[in-house]
Design a protein around this nucleic acid. Structure first.
Length: 600
RNA sequence: GCCCCCGUAGCUCAACGGAUAGAGCAGCAGCCUUCUAAGCUGUUGGCUGCGCGUUCGAGUCGCGCCGGGGGCGCCA
């Protein structure tokens, strides 16, 4: 649907409205008609007109009158050439495309544009997605995976939709948790270093769990235990001081162990197909954060209550709100040290000024909603115009059936464990379903399908909802799942491989099967879905689209012969439709950060 | 006390203010000498938490309840 065609259609409609003496609305919305075997656009303007007439005093039933208007319009509308038929149905005015020419255009576009099919026009605004920001000295669990996958899919969608896009990560590399690990390392494991990227990363989590147990008051401690714990606690505090003052030995150990975490993170990101452009470290935000607080005080936005209190911003008061909503935020402790919020303000400024970001998306769990609302409002008060385009993509937790995951208690499901298990399960399925695959192919397919299943399970639930992690549903290979979509891609691929060279063009002038029309319809909607998913920051829309497309293709595959078509012209047209579908499937999966294997 | 999120089929979830609220899982009945059965077809299943309002039209928007979760001055 081009702008010219839509304009032409609207012009004819306005003319027809004029002829029947009806008021002409400012804006006419056309939406796809619910699928009925032929494909077109419908508008509900008749409802609006009938409602307006009723309001002006015309008696009678609005719905009947709308149907009457639709009927009159249908008989008087001069149809632009792209359309073949106009009808009044359920008081809607529907126009139907010339299916043949439209189908050919959709299929030709998808095939000729290939991996770029659906790419949006370049946009002026620069967008940054901040995600994959786990704390160091921990290991990457399934909740972090939800974050990483959401952010990556969003970044891919935004980029493909036309936004210059920067991927940013903000690891938390300081704080009591980090110091706790360092303490345990120096106390019990000095000089040790497990071999293997994941082993080292996971080992730090083990240290953290052990240390936390030793430092947490027990239920019935003996006096000796209490004394020991308090001694440990004093050591940890001392270590924190030494880290803070820049003690070379402590800093060196911190950097070394931090690198272990970052190495593991890099490996996991590689598995997920994620490349981060910019790393911001929390430990590097301290000074810029202090600087911004000074400015906030100087501008009268922040109130300095030191030495009796901290530096605060009374946000509601500054905004003139009567009810408490954004409340009061502390931006600097009374001892002059910064907080998470302070660092986020400094980080935002760096994003705006150094990276020239116009839209800034933060993929962070929903518990931090107030934190981000406060941060965005303070940025607005400061005067950053980009503050209005800061968006917190809040997502719900991944919990276990028995309750929340807790790194402290050590009951976390690590991403790597799930990935390994996914691989094992896919290998089993391959052995059963497709034993002819070579060992090399098996490994490759298992990685794509296993990880794909996990990624899809995390993306196909609205980000506002919690996910209860369950091995069987997270690694489901049936129904609404990545393997189902990948399998549709593989089947299309298989047809095309057997069909020989793809015909350069084909006509859709024969009587199309309803499944062919539906397939063409879905393929044609891909570009609009990209835009909507990117602009609304909702990878879920793409996840749903990919499933719909795969489902329709599977049905088509069973009901409609392609290579076995008796008519050569029909065979060519269906081969091209299969190729167009394969392209839309492949592009959709790519935007979900899921790989599409050629065989499975 | 205030703020935010969620409530749709037995379970897990979809649905630009628009046409008969849809999928998957689970259940039941079928389909592999035919392009990969990780598939397809059929079938069972609903006062969209409750009430009022706005609208030609509400699962969707507004207000008020109920239930669940989260957050609220020196944690991150």
């Amino acid at each position: 649907m081009t702008h010219q065609e839509l304009d032409g259609l609207n012009a004819s409609l306005r003319e027809a409205l004029g002829r029947i003496g009806a008021p002409i609305p400012d804006k006419i919305d056309w939406t796809p008609i619910p699928f009925s075997g032929q494909w077109g656009l419908g508008t509900a303007v008749c409802f609006q007109i009938a409602a307006a007439e009723a309001k002006a005093g015309r008696p009678g039933d609005v719905r009947l009158r709308a149907a009457e208007i639709a009927g009159e319009l249908a008989s008087r509308l001069t149809l632009p050439s792209a359309f073949s038929r106009v009808a009044s149905e359920n008081a809607y005015l529907n126009v139907y495309f010339d299916t043949g020419s439209y189908a050919a255009r959709v299929v030709d576009d998808a095939i000729s544009q290939g991996p770029d099919y659906g790419r949006g026009d370049a946009k002026a605004e620069r967008l940054m997605v901040e995600y994959a920001q786990p704390n160091t000295h921990h290991s990457f669990h399934i909740g972090h995976a939800r974050n990483a996958v959401l952010g990556e899919s969003l970044a891919r969608l935004a980029e493909f939709a036309g936004f210059p896009t920067i991927r940013a990560s903000y690891p938390g590399d300081l704080g009591l948790g980090v110091i706790t690990v360092l303490w345990a390392y120096r106390k019990f494991y000095r000089g040790q270093e497990p071999q293997g990227v994941h082993e080292r990363g996971q080992w730090l989590l083990k240290l953290y769990v052990e240390a936390t147990a030793l430092l947490t008051p027990g239920e019935s401690e003996t006096p000796e235990e209490t004394a020991r714990r308090e001694a440990y606690e004093a050591e940890r505090r001392d270590l924190y001081r030494r880290w803070d003052s820049g003690d070379p030995e402590v800093r060196e150990l911190w950097r070394l162990t931090r690198q272990w975490s970052l190495d593991e993170l890099a490996e996991i990101l590689r598995m997920l197909g994620i490349h981060i452009d910019v790393f911001f470290f929390e430990s590097e935000a301290e000074e810029p954060a202090k600087a911004i607080v000074k400015e906030l005080i100087a501008r009268g936005i922040a109130d300095d209550e030191r030495p009796d209190g901290p530096v605060i911003v009374r946000i509601d008061e500054k905004l003139g709100l009567k009810k408490e909503k954004y409340r009061t935020a502390v931006v600097l402790r009374s001892d002059g040290t910064t907080l998470y919020l302070t660092k986020d303000l400094a980080l935002a400024r760096q994003k705006f000024e150094k990276h020239h970001v116009d839209r800034s998306v933060y993929v962070v769990d929903f518990r931090q909603s107030l934190h981000f609302q406060q941060a965005f409002k303070i940025l607005e008060l400061y005067g950053f115009p980009q503050a209005a385009k800061c968006y917190h993509l809040a997502y719900g937790f991944v919990t276990l059936p028995e309750g929340a995951m807790s790194a402290r208690k050590g009951n976390v499901v690590l991403f790597k464990e799930v990935a390994d298990e996914a691989l094992r399960r896919v290998q089993d399925v391959i052995a059963e379903k497709n034993p002819s695959l070579s060992p090399e192919e098996r490994g490759d397919v298992a990685a794509k399908v296993g990880l794909g299943a996990l990624v899809y399970a995390l993306l196909s639930v609205d980000n506002s909802k919690h996910i209860v992690f369950d091995w069987d549903s997270a690694l489901s290979f049936d129904g609404q799942s990545a393997p189902y979509i990948q399998n549709a891609h593989v089947r299309a691929n298989s047809i095309l491989r057997k069909g020989g060279s793809l015909p350069g063009s084909a006509a859709y002038t024969y009587e199309l099967d309803p499944l062919e029309v539906e397939l063409i319809d879905l393929v044609s909607r891909f570009p609009a879905t990209v835009q909507q998913a990117a602009l609304e920051y909702k990878p879920l829309l793409m996840a749903n689209y990919a499933f719909e497309l795969a489902r329709t293709f599977h049905a088509f595959y069973h009901a409609v012969p392609v290579l076995q078509s008796e008519d050569e012209k029909v065979r060519e047209a269906r081969m091209r439709l299969t190729a167009a579908t394969r392209q839309a499937l492949s592009n959709s999966l790519r935007l979900l950060a899921i790989q599409a294997p050629a065989v499975m």
